[in-house]
Design a protein around this nucleic acid. Structure first.
Lengths: 256, 256
DNA sequence: CGAGGTGTTGAGTCATTTCAAGTAGAGTGG
DNA sequence: CCACTCTACTTGAAATGACTCAACACCTCG
């Protein structure tokens, strides 16, 4: 009823791409019914365990990762408020990776079947859900490419641009933002050591492309960074024209 | 009507995961209505161009890639018979990467809207489609991890295991198979140079993990390779239990 | 027979890693 | 208020794995 967008990052994020009907909002709100606090370093999901529930991130940052046999770690994704964690776990009985909190935060757990309501009742939301998943996939492949084929410096620049682009989706347009990730974590995300990340960041700062102070990071020149890292903003170029019409949503909703 | 599975890799692949109803088969066959031959080296899709059509691979191998500003190339995916090319392009107006044929082959183009029939008429096929897309995503992330965090030798081993696991999905269980990819291409897929790939393969062969002859490759010890590369067969561990029942498919089909 | 594509091998180079030492800040307890 | 500890970050030197460069072998195709 109260269609204040501001109370839910999930709704704010989705509104960014399509206009939500009241029933869409109701469906989304159902996912955020429950709330659970998380502490820094707390494990939210263990790889290998059954995937019982998915999460909406309410507050705070988290990340997905896997450990390698030799003890090294690979960070697959950083999760922000408004993100859905675990859609990509759907086709697996056992979780393919761990999820851990970076900062204090709140997550909203809901059962796997919680998506059913969306998938059966709102083709438009379903399309957006699939679309966002595919965009995330494209983003991951971009990061892969950067890590595999570019210098440490460009790779780190690419990572920062990726964070910026994703924060933008939930409305934070600013080029200066709080980055609560330590350099070992960033390294594990782009395939470098903490030492190399430190050197890359220091150099980027010396060159005037970024600025750091007090846990904040500022992207001083988006153009230069984009150019250096061959960065593409996949969220900005998302195409929603193939989505079913809202009208069809109505018909289906009535038809059930 | 003639439900010979053997005439379509797509149907054979899908049958591997769920039992297809006659109407499912009809839906899938519609995707393979048209056929177009491809030659080695032929570009099937250009990055940046509008995505008008998707493809089912009928015969032959293809691959998706992007070029970097400095001329280097990153190969994102190898496509086999039975694969759907371009599902991940759905949310983009412009293609995010190029597609090129490796060998002689046949592809079956169909318009983006060709998927609509499946998505609206068969929840079960839709679920499988989404599931397979998510599995492919997990596979890509595994390859990312291998490339970012493991040795050249392990990374190449991982790549080979990945090919083997995917061939298995369309029924080729054998550990000896034809590998029509040159070493530069493999390098571009795992983030190495052709020279490093050559050295890695030579070493793997000397160690007895693989054997090569006449364009064929044989995985001599799956266990050792799996161990070396920390390989997980994502296709084998796919969970279909969350799919809607075939019964529901019936109801929906009647309901329209 | 020559040309082009492909794979192998060795020598030298280079970017990133490893190792190590040192700085800074936050939190703790005496 | 001052050690003390922890974590995070920086910086330099040395080690190393992959890269570059280059020569050569092999095969297919004309």
């Amino acid at each position: 009823m109260a269609s204040e967008a501001s109370d839910s990052c999930l709704i704010r994020k989705f509104s960014n791409f399509i206009s939500l009907t009241p029933s869409d909002r109701t469906l989304l709100k159902a996912l955020e019914k429950d709330t659970r606090p998380v502490r820094p370093g707390q494990t939210v999901r263990n790889a290998g365990r059954r995937v019982e529930e998915l999460y909406v991130v309410g507050k705070g940052w988290l990340f997905s990762y896997t450990d390698l046999p030799d003890g090294r770690r690979h960070v697959l994704q950083i999760h922000f408020p408004g993100d859905l964690i675990g859609v990509n776990q759907l086709p697996f009985v056992q979780a393919t990776h761990d999820v851990e909190a970076v900062t204090d935060g709140e997550i909203c757990p809901f059962p796997k079947q919680g998506l059913d309501a969306i998938l059966t009742q709102s083709p438009r939301l379903s399309a957006l859900l699939i679309g966002l998943t595919l965009v995330e996939q494209a983003v991951a492949l971009d990061r892969f490419r950067a890590s595999a084929r570019m210098s440490a410096r460009a790779s780190v620049a690419h990572f920062l641009m990726g964070i910026w682009a994703r924060l933008k989706v939930t409305g934070e347009e600013r080029t200066r933002f709080h980055l609560p990730l330590n350099q070992a974590l960033i390294g594990d995300a782009v395939g470098l050591t903490n030492v190399s990340v430190s050197k890359a960041l220091t150099r980027l700062e010396r060159e005037g492309l970024i600025r750091r102070d007090d846990g904040m990071i500022e992207l001083k020149s988006l153009a230069a960074l984009r150019n250096l890292a061959a960065f593409d903003d996949r969220y900005a170029s998302m195409d929603t024209s193939w989505f079913p019409d809202a009208a069809i949503t109505e018909i289906n909703a009535n038809g059930e």
